[in-house]
Design a protein around this nucleic acid. Structure first.
Lengths: 118, 118
DNA sequence: GTTAGTAGTATACAAAAGGTTAGTACTAAC
DNA sequence: GTTAGTACTAACCTTTTGTATACTACTAAC
């Protein structure tokens, strides 16, 4: 169980950097919620905002920009009247599934543990 | 690839809460670094602080308290002169290994991808 | 002409996280 | 008696993150 990380200092530092990168990309209060909203099929700005309880336009705008930068989201401007913008999740976002699965399982387990201790 | 999450809204919200819990516990700038330092065998406060480049006593103290609260760390006061305090990682911290493995693999992959795109 | 919808941006503010510096109280070595 | 080491804590400051409210500019419906 413990052979895989934390043993060799050099390898470990490289690994920690990778972990930090990953946490940076999916960290924060809203990133994962936005990804989930997009996966659920919401594509337009106001649509996404309404589907995520409590997010402000300013924050959603910033999150979408970051997600686009990281290759998770594609922004598409459709020249109509009025101009419509569609946000779509890319297949690259699927590469997060292992992380999300591990986080989900651990989170559930930890929650159960805390509950059983009370 | 996408069947596992993001399909059913109810399940999905429960899953998101678990993910948020997990991110909360291991998130932040220092948590994982402290865990790694403890795994490397550092047990004393100043020792740990010296092993983590750039962390202040104030922040280390806060991180250790949180880690203790979450069951990752055991604090032991040894009544000598001078009083010595030892911090030890608990077996529970090993339950994070799946998360760390997934984060590490993804972080490495993402970094390589960004590098190859430049 | 008012309202509502399109997709945001601007400004200001609040809260949280983290950093800096100094200091506590004790002991042991020089 | 000064310095250094033990393990911290307090006060204050800065940066980051998130919130609230208002506003742009355009169109279409009522």
């Amino acid at each position: 169980m413990s052979q895989e990380w934390g043993r060799d200092a050099v390898k470990c530092n490289a690994a920690m950097t990778s972990v930090a990168d990953a946490l940076y990309v999916i960290g924060g209060k809203w990133k994962l919620r936005v990804i989930v909203a997009l996966r659920e099929g919401y594509t337009r700005f106001n649509e996404i905002q309404r589907s995520i309880d409590g997010i402000s336009a300013r924050v959603l705008s910033a999150e979408l920009k970051e997600l686009e930068l990281n290759g998770f989201v594609k922004r598409e401007v459709i020249a109509q009247t009025p101009v419509v913008v569609e946000y779509h999740i890319t297949p690259y976002a699927d590469t997060l599934s292992d992380i999300l699965k591990a986080l989900m399982e651990w989170g559930t387990m930890h929650r159960d543990k805390l509950r059983s201790e009370r």
